[in-house]
């Protein structure tokens, strides 16, 4: 980034490191603390490794707002969050400690439901109604898209249920993986078909 219009001037600042990782780590931590204290950290995020790949977890002050799989491209997801929620985004793992703890328990087979504050702002209208219903499908059980449509009060809206599941901003925590096709096959999933099969097999085995 140095303008080397004068090579001697460039040499002059050689003693001043262009990258100082320990200092940046310290300053980043301080920035997160001060941003939280001043109430200007609108979105905190972290990543965690799981049996279905690396997950991105993002939280507003209201609660968990987004869970994204690696195949959804975390950078792209963060850019969309910057547009849809706020660009005041920092990597702040501590604010997601409770979320990652409960997910770890879930993947270890020690947790069958999540008890977390959720921010539903990325889901609206009928889709949100569908997702709200999904929380009632218990661990290890499944429902067909048609059953979910009927439960949401619109038995003919099977396709819309499919869209609601596909665009679920909070997969895993809102268990859209428990919605399967009427013929028993798994159907699509934001995390990819393999991730869905992994989750269904894991819940059946527990």
């Amino acid at each position: 980034m140095t303008t080397a219009s004068d090579p001697q001037a460039g040499r002059l600042f050689a003693a001043l490191p262009t990258q100082d990782a320990p200092a940046m780590a310290r300053l980043h931590e301080r920035l997160v603390d001060e941003a939280q204290r001043e109430g200007v950290l609108d979105l905190a995020y972290r990543t965690m490794d799981t049996p279905v790949g690396r997950l991105l977890l993002a939280s507003t002050v209201q609660g968990l707002v987004k869970v994204a799989f690696a195949i959804q491209d975390h950078d792209a997801v963060l850019r969309r969050l910057a547009d849809d929620v706020s660009p005041r985004i920092l990597e702040a793992p501590a604010r997601l400690d409770e979320v990652s703890r409960q997910l770890e328990e879930y993947f270890a087979g020690r947790r069958t439901r999540f008890d977390l504050p959720l921010d539903w702002r990325l889901s609206k209208g009928f889709r949100r109604e569908v997702l709200t219903h999904l929380r009632e499908i218990g661990y290890g059980r499944t429902e067909s898209y048609a059953q979910v449509a009927a439960a949401a009060g619109s038995p003919r809206a099977v396709r819309a249920v499919g869209t609601a599941c596909a665009t679920n901003p909070l997969p895993l925590v809102v268990p859209c993986h428990r919605v399967v096709r009427s013929d028993g096959s798994a159907g699509g999933y934001a995390g990819g078909p393999d991730a869905k099969l992994t989750l269904l097999a894991m819940e059946r085995a527990a």
Partner: peptide, 23 residues
């Protein structure tokens, strides 16, 4: 389209630190 602020810190944080240190 605005980038997440985390990217701004990562990209420009070291430069701003050099400037602050020099000044």
């Amino acid at each position: 389209m605005r980038r997440p602020f985390e990217q701004i810190v990562a990209e420009y944080g070291p430069m701003v630190l050099r400037v602050c240190r020099a000044v």
